[in-house]
């Protein structure tokens, strides 16, 4: 700013302070809270009047039930699109928790990874639309879901599971990791603890898958008729496998194929 400010310039700068505006989400929420309060006071009367109709004219009962069901369905559908920190979000969480009760132990890793992806989508949406108020709850929800997914992944034993399914889990966990980097590039700060656990669990599974496929490969070679040279290579491969030098086992196999 120049040393001596003119009156005209000062007025112009003062007008620039009009850029100070409240958050749009907050404006809408506050309005609905203020004007919605009266609705809350009136609601018992409305229920009584509905019940009165229900008892006085049983013929309306069907209509009332349909109305209630449609309202519930509408609320439920709206809740599915809600974001963390929003009014209907708890309904979405309750519905997810209810569904989770019926998920078997085997399907838990799949469900928890899907939920983590869902939470990440919500967080991305919050970050992209600059809903500052929803950011902290969205980050917390995502971190909780990632920790849960990591916990479920760490319980998997790759040797006794379907390798194709385990591979899908590993890929899904990797995708989450990649997407998190994109969200971080929007300026969102996400705690590393849960993500590190997820990465550790997924890397462990990936390694187990590799070992499993190498063991299968060796066992397959053992059942074949091999030349003296090939026998030697096979024995080298076994030694390297014992020493946990997995990439070298693979390299040896590929070079001499």
């Amino acid at each position: 700013m120049t040393d001596i400010i003119t009156e005209k310039k000062l007025i112009g700068k003062l007008r620039e302070l009009r850029q100070i505006k409240p958050n749009k989400d907050w404006v809408l929420l506050t309005k609905s809270q203020i004007l919605g309060q009266e609705e809350k006071y009136r609601s018992p009367i409305s229920i009584i009047s509905v019940l009165r109709v229900f008892f006085a004219k049983p013929g309306y009962a069907g209509l009332v039930i349909i109305f209630i069901l449609v309202s519930l369905f509408g609320t439920f559908t709206l809740a599915q699109n809600s974001l963390p920190g929003q009014l209907l979000y708890p309904i979405k969480k309750i519905s997810e928790k209810t569904q989770a009760v019926f998920v078997s132990e085997i399907d838990k890793p799949k469900t928890s990874l899907e939920l983590a992806s869902k939470r990440l989508e919500e967080l991305t949406k919050v970050a992209e639309t600059n809903r500052v108020q929803n950011l902290a709850p969205a980050i917390n929800e995502f971190q909780a879901s990632v920790s849960e997914a990591a916990k479920n992944l760490s319980k998997i034993d790759a040797t006794s599971s379907d390798p194709a399914v385990v591979k899908r889990f590993v890929d899904q966990a990797k995708k989450i990791g990649e997407k998190v980097e994109e969200v971080k590039s929007l300026g969102v700060v996400i705690g590393e603890e849960g993500l590190e656990k997820l990465e550790k669990a997924s890397s462990k599974l990936e390694l187990e898958l590799l070992v499993l496929s190498l063991e299968n490969m060796i066992s397959d070679l053992e059942n074949r008729t091999l030349t003296e040279k090939q026998e030697k290579i096979l024995s080298q491969m076994k030694e390297l496998l014992e020493e946990e030098k997995y990439s070298e086992v693979l390299e040896l196999f590929l070079v001499n194929q």
Partner: peptide, 21 residues
């Protein structure tokens, strides 16, 4: 000077002389 609820572009628009005012 700015409401933290406002977006980053708007934040960038506001300069230090507005802060002084």
């Amino acid at each position: 000077i700015i409401d933290p609820g406002e977006n980053l572009e708007k934040k960038a628009m506001l300069r230090s002389d507005l802060e002084t005012i």
